[in-house]
Design a protein around this nucleic acid. Structure first.
Lengths: 250, 250
DNA sequence: CCAAAATCATTCAAATTCATTCATTTTTCG
DNA sequence: CGAAAAATGAATGAATTTGAATGATTTTGG
């Protein structure tokens, strides 16, 4: 029985029963106890269940439509996988820039504690400070669409810092047009973050590939694009020539 | 039967019956008396039930002392009344500074739409932008205690703006020491907000009066203190000589 | 008020479950 | 094919949970 099968089985059992014992899972899957434990750890990491002594329980919220949920979950899982890998790149004492966005947001639980974060997202800022992580918020005008800070003020702010690493979300990535985003103001903030950073990472699930939006942020050279394994093999090879592509397995 | 299952069972039994005996729980769960006792202790710890001799009872929804509760409600209402009055001072097309704090937070629902707000609170910023109010967030380091932005960066940011009105929260107000707040960094931001504003308002419920904390923000001259009617008559008269005191009736 | 009965907190050892490590097998990819 | 990476299962000792025993505390019934 393959790993995804087991995971699926575990989750569907949980949907029915609310609680499952490890021994129960060993029996029904035929896998060893070690494997089941590993499964449970992974599924917990992905926020799909909660481990308890002796087994696991379902999480509380299960209100959504199954079809929409499943798609959302898949997309969500991709984003979590990408975010988790990205967060693993952050070391103690790093100073990093965190862009506003859903994917970067997912990085927060996995970040180490002793770092300095500069962000354009008040939302992310509030979450970081609750985790006691030193946080600097860019100043400037708040954009309703993305809940991020942009404008002249933000641009001046960001110039005062230098980053070991920066992590950007992006709306489109394309072989010819590079990285693009709908809002020129935001594009500029992202550009500066890239400029002031030693290592440059862009978090981008595979659905964003070969998409172009209005404002260009940067070319693909000199950055690392972290994505999931949803790309066609040929695209993956093509993009690998243009940029440093890191594919995260789900 | 795993621990969370037992806990769930105990709580659901309590929801039906209001009281459960230990022996009853031993019988239905099959666990030993020791285990049940441990369960009850934990659940009590989590404020999910109350242990009694021989078993446990459900928690009433009126846990708090009436006096404390009533006081909290009253305090809340005072803050709302103050905030509502303060918000009524804001006119269309004003540009205002909104300080971080619970009282200023209460102003948000009552603000008119067509204004520009500068704030040091990312929390307030996020709420404003959802109401489609043009919002500028100060940049700088986030303080965990007050969830507000302070520091050199914030100070430089704020200097770029001029306000028709500013609204500050405050921790202490005293005849001799004026306005004080525990954190010197925050005090400085508040000072600048006052400096760059035409009309200066301080929101301060009556319990803060005659309180002094570490860092001085400003003297009482030249500002308007908005408070509730919880002051002694004599204090009210005294403070009226020192500052522009506006008492809001509950 | 007293004594018996019931209930309780605490301790300890046994049983279960757990994380970690390591060798083996399987898969992946050049 | 062959090396590297990933998945697996067994083994180990650590950590948690459990139930029984003990003596202290509270309740009950006279």
């Amino acid at each position: 029985m393959l790993t995804p099968e087991r995971h699926q089985l575990i989750l569907s059992l949980l949907k029915e029963k609310e609680v499952v014992r490890i021994q129960e899972l060993v029996d029904t899957t035929g896998a060893s106890e070690s494997t089941i434990r590993r499964d449970l750890s992974e599924l917990e990491e992905q926020r799909l269940l909660k481990r308890i002594h002796g087994g696991a329980t379902a999480l509380q919220n299960k209100i959504e439509e199954p079809t929409i949920l499943e798609k959302a979950v898949k997309n969500e899982q991709q984003k979590i996988a990408i975010a988790k890998y990205a967060a693993s790149l952050v070391k103690e004492r790093d100073s990093i820039f965190l862009d506003a966005g859903t994917t970067t947001n997912q990085m927060l639980p996995y970040l180490p504690g002793n770092i300095i974060v500069v962000t354009s997202s008040p939302d992310i800022g509030l979450q970081l400070i609750k985790r006691n992580i030193k946080t600097i918020l860019l100043g400037g005008e708040l954009k309703a669409a993305t809940l991020s800070v942009v404008g002249r003020e933000a641009i001046k702010s960001i110039g005062q810092y230098r980053f070991d690493k920066c992590f950007l979300g992006i709306n489109g990535i394309d072989k010819h047009h590079g990285l693009t985003t709908p809002d020129p103001d935001e594009a500029y903030v992202k550009q500066l973050a890239l400029q002031f950073s030693d290592e440059r990472y862009v978090l981008c699930d595979s659905e964003k590939f070969s998409g172009v939006t209005f404002a260009k942020v940067a070319d693909l050279r000199g950055i690392t694009v972290i994505t999931d394994d949803g790309l066609y093999e040929e695209d993956q090879q093509e993009y690998s020539k243009l940029t440093n592509l890191k594919v995260v397995k789900l």
